[in-house]
Amino acid sequence: MENKIAKASCGTMESSDAYMELEPVAGATQIELQSVVEHQFGESIRALAAQMLAEEGIENVRLSIIDRGALECTLRARLETLIGRAREGGSAHA
């Protein structure tokens, strides 16, 4: 699988959504999360993001997530879109 990653973003800051950015970095992958449900779901959100990146074979990126209480299906959707956009050159794509 082609693993060239460009800087990309996805999602919104609205309630029940999440805003995410992905960019290539030199070192190991970093996942940064700010969440209104940090205590209750912080670990599971980080694990989900790490798992989806791993499944796509994506390494050496910085992923930042601002979560506004998104359900798991929404987080999965936003991560999938983000990865798709990063692969296709970064900007939003139809």
Partner: peptide
């Protein structure tokens, strides 16, 4: 919006699949 068509497609698909 035209530049969010990809995001909407995935979101709607997941919403139907999970909910």
């Amino acid at each position: 919006a035209p530049d969010q068509k990809d995001a909407a497609r995935v979101l709607v698909r997941n919403a139907i699949k999970y909910l």
